[in-house]
């Protein structure tokens, strides 16, 4: 789909991916390639399959890949476990971050960070060293230290949960981050914090996929490419102005693309 020639190798290649859950097809041949430094936005109505795509890239066990491959840094990762994908640098920011009562946030973040560090052949951190690192990163998302002693996401407000996601992203330093509706349920201040967090973490070597309904996150983080999904397929790809057009004309406008194709 991308016309420009790229100098470096792609981070993520999704090739003609079809997938189903409980024998119900959800994705019907999705292709997508992300190069270092690129920001992609995927837009579409509820139920179009955009969240499913993100879960499948992260390896959710409830979905079966019926056709196609997902390549990460050139390797087929179709059969990798979710934790292996995470350790190798794929990050999924959840639309609804899961509450895990009883598991301390600090401990969770430390075990997770160490799993990634181990993969990168870096030294694992003890609680003391980790506290130092986490303090720095807390700044990025403007979170209070007290969040660390609470249970994972439990009793967090919508905004706090999303900031906790970005904190995890900052700690894990992924090669590619897929952020599923990270902007939903955020007030304008929280949205700015999250957006600036994402910008701080990303760089010329990382790729980002933003899954969203609305333009407002894209006002903060300008994507290189915008893809519109409908019924398990990418029906249109364009540059950032496509999102503006979509905002203006609504999703009914995209229904015409389907008739065309």
């Amino acid at each position: 789909m991308q016309s420009k020639m790229k100098e470096s190798d792609p981070i993520l290649e999704v090739e003609n991916l079809s997938a189903s859950t409980d024998n119900l097809p959800i994705l019907k041949g999705v292709s997508l390639t992300v190069y270092p430094g690129e920001i992609h936005a995927i837009m579409g109505r509820n139920g179009c399959g955009k969240s499913t795509l993100s879960k499948i890239i992260a390896g959710h066990p409830s979905y079966n890949i019926t056709n196609g491959v997902i390549k990460f840094l050139g390797e087929n990762i179709n059969s990798l476990e979710p934790e292996e994908r995470s350790q190798s640098g794929i990050f999924l920011g959840f639309q609804y971050p899961i509450e895990i009562p009883g598991v301390s946030n600090l401990e969770f973040l430390r075990v997770s960070t160490n799993a990634r560090r181990k993969f990168l052949n870096k030294e694992e951190l003890d609680t003391f060293d980790f506290e130092e690192i986490v303090k720095e990163k807390l700044e990025i998302v403007k979170m209070d230290h007290a969040f660390l002693s609470r249970s994972v996401n439990q009793g967090f407000s919508g905004g706090e949960k999303k900031r906790n996601e970005i904190l995890q992203m900052a700690l894990l330093e992924p090669k590619i981050a897929i952020l599923d509706e990270t902007d939903s349920g955020l007030d304008i201040d929280a949205l700015r914090i999250v957006a600036s967090g994402i910008k701080k973490i990303s760089n010329a070597q990382t790729g980002i996929i933003l899954i969203t309904h609305y333009q407002r996150l894209l006002d903060e983080i300008k994507p290189n490419y915008v893809h519109v999904m409908s019924d398990g397929q990418i029906i249109k790809t364009g540059e950032s102005d496509l999102a503006l057009e979509l905002e203006e004309k609504g999703y009914e406008w995209t229904d015409n693309f389907i008739k065309e194709t």
């Binding site: 992260a58 959710h60 934790e83 959840f94 899961i98 969770f108 997770s112 799993a115």
Partner: peptide, 9 residues
């Protein structure tokens, strides 16, 4: 799954 996407086995 959430924990596994954070690299925890």
């Amino acid at each position: 799954f959430y924990m596994r996407t954070r690299g925890i086995t």
